[in-house]
Amino acid sequence: ETEYTFDDKREADRAAKEAQNNGLRVHVTKDGNRWKVRID
């Protein structure tokens, strides 16, 4: 399990989409004014 934090939602969405394309499970959550992408 890996977690990334992004300031920009577009960057978070791009990272999530890339991980999904690689067959990974992805969870995107909002943390204040930042975005967390957790990859299982």
Rank of each mutant, 00 (worst) to 15 (best):
E1D: 13
E1P: 11
E1H: 13
E1S: 13
E1R: 10
E1G: 13
E1Y: 15
T2H: 13
T2G: 12
E3V: 11
E3Y: 10
E3L: 07
Y4V: 09
Y4L: 14
Y4P: 04
Y4W: 13
T5A: 07
T5L: 14
T5P: 03
T5F: 15
T5Y: 15
T5H: 11
F6G: 01
F6A: 02
F6V: 03
D7S: 10
D7Q: 08
D7T: 10
D7G: 07
D7F: 07
D7K: 07
D8Q: 06
D8H: 08
D8S: 14
D8T: 15
D8F: 04
K9N: 03
K9W: 15
K9R: 09
K9A: 08
R10Q: 14
R10A: 15
R10S: 15
R10M: 13
R10P: 08
E11D: 14
E11W: 06
E11G: 07
E11A: 11
A12D: 01
A12F: 01
A12E: 00
A12T: 01
D13I: 15
D13F: 12
D13S: 07
D13W: 11
D13M: 15
D13A: 08
R14M: 12
R14L: 12
R14Q: 11
R14T: 08
A15D: 01
A15V: 15
A15L: 13
A15Y: 15
A15S: 05
A16K: 05
A16P: 01
A16Q: 05
A16W: 04
A16I: 12
A16T: 05
K17E: 11
K17N: 10
K17I: 12
K17V: 10
K17M: 12
K17D: 09
K17Q: 13
E18G: 05
E18N: 10
E18F: 05
E18Q: 11
E18Y: 04
E18H: 11
E18I: 14
A19L: 15
A19I: 08
A19G: 04
A19R: 03
Q20I: 14
N21P: 00
N21L: 12
N21F: 07
N21Y: 06
N21R: 13
N21A: 14
G23T: 01
G23P: 00
G23I: 01
G23M: 03
L24I: 05
L24Y: 11
L24T: 03
L24E: 04
L24A: 09
L24W: 08
R25E: 09
R25I: 13
R25K: 12
V26D: 01
V26K: 00
V26M: 02
H27A: 10
H27Y: 05
H27Q: 12
H27E: 12
H27K: 11
V28Q: 02
V28G: 00
V28F: 01
V28W: 00
V28P: 01
V28A: 01
T29H: 08
T29P: 00
T29I: 13
T29E: 13
K30H: 09
K30S: 08
K30P: 07
K30W: 06
K30F: 09
D31P: 01
D31W: 02
D31Y: 03
D31T: 07
D31F: 03
D31G: 02
D31L: 06
D31A: 08
G32L: 01
G32F: 00
G32K: 05
G32M: 01
G32V: 00
N33Y: 03
N33K: 05
N33Q: 06
R34Q: 11
R34Y: 07
R34A: 05
R34K: 12
W35M: 04
W35Q: 04
W35L: 04
W35E: 04
W35A: 04
W35V: 04
W35D: 04
W35N: 03
K36L: 14
K36Y: 07
K36Q: 09
V37G: 01
V37H: 00
V37L: 05
V37P: 03
V37W: 00
V37E: 03
V37F: 00
R38N: 09
R38Q: 09
R38P: 01
R38W: 08
R38H: 14
I39Y: 04
I39S: 02
D40F: 12
D40Y: 10
D40L: 15
D40K: 10
D40N: 10
D40M: 15
